[in-house]
Amino acid sequence: MALIELSGIERAFHLGDSVVHALAGIDLVIKAGEYVSIVGASGSGKSTLLNVLGLLDRPAAGSYHLEDRDVTTLSANEQAAVRSRRIGFVFQSFHLVPRLTAAENIALPLLLAGIAPAEREARVGRALREFGLEQRARHRPDELSGGQRQRVAIARATIMQPALLLADEPTGNLDRATGEEVIRLLEALNAGGVTLILVTHDPALAAHAQRQLVMEDGRLKSDTDR
């Protein structure tokens, strides 16, 4: 079953007189549970593609079906609901709220979804255990290592049990060993059933994925499925 169906997706940025076609006609089908890596030169449109997939950005043209529903026509509130329930983001720079503890950061999506405190606590507790963060629950981001920060971010991205996990260079700010540890964590989540789309510019990491996309100038240059 197709989780994602993109056809003819376009996204252009206007900088003065010049136009940058960040996405120039993307057709792509991703099945539920797939593990897809995206590589490509800087500026090739990887992040823009991820933003469109995550409903953070609207394509100028083309259609996007997520779980068989045309999501480009949804209202802003409906899109927010889809982000809340179906999509998890992991960023290169972690994006943790500095004044909140690890546990509070993980609880944010639950808070925004209006989930009751008791259930919130139970789910955050479970996530902290699963991600080996129990000892760090009350620590703020600046008291955590890079690897721990990204684990908090991943716990937060998956706390709502999304169908789709979007990771934009999640190892970009980590050393090799920590980066591999984070990738193993994401792969374990994928093994658990989450569709994982991983943007990276490390070919070795990209090779982990069963399906590899290469982008160039806003187009899919290649699509290899092992």
């Binding site: 549970g33 609901a81 979804a113 209006g114 169908a163």
Partner: peptide, 22 residues
């Protein structure tokens, strides 16, 4: 599938942040 429910979320009926949490 970790996400058991495939139902499309209805934003009008979705719970929102509670006043206390805000």
């Amino acid at each position: 599938m970790p996400a058991g429910e495939q139902v499309t979320p209805d934003p009008e009926r979705m719970p929102v942040m509670s006043g206390a949490d805000i």
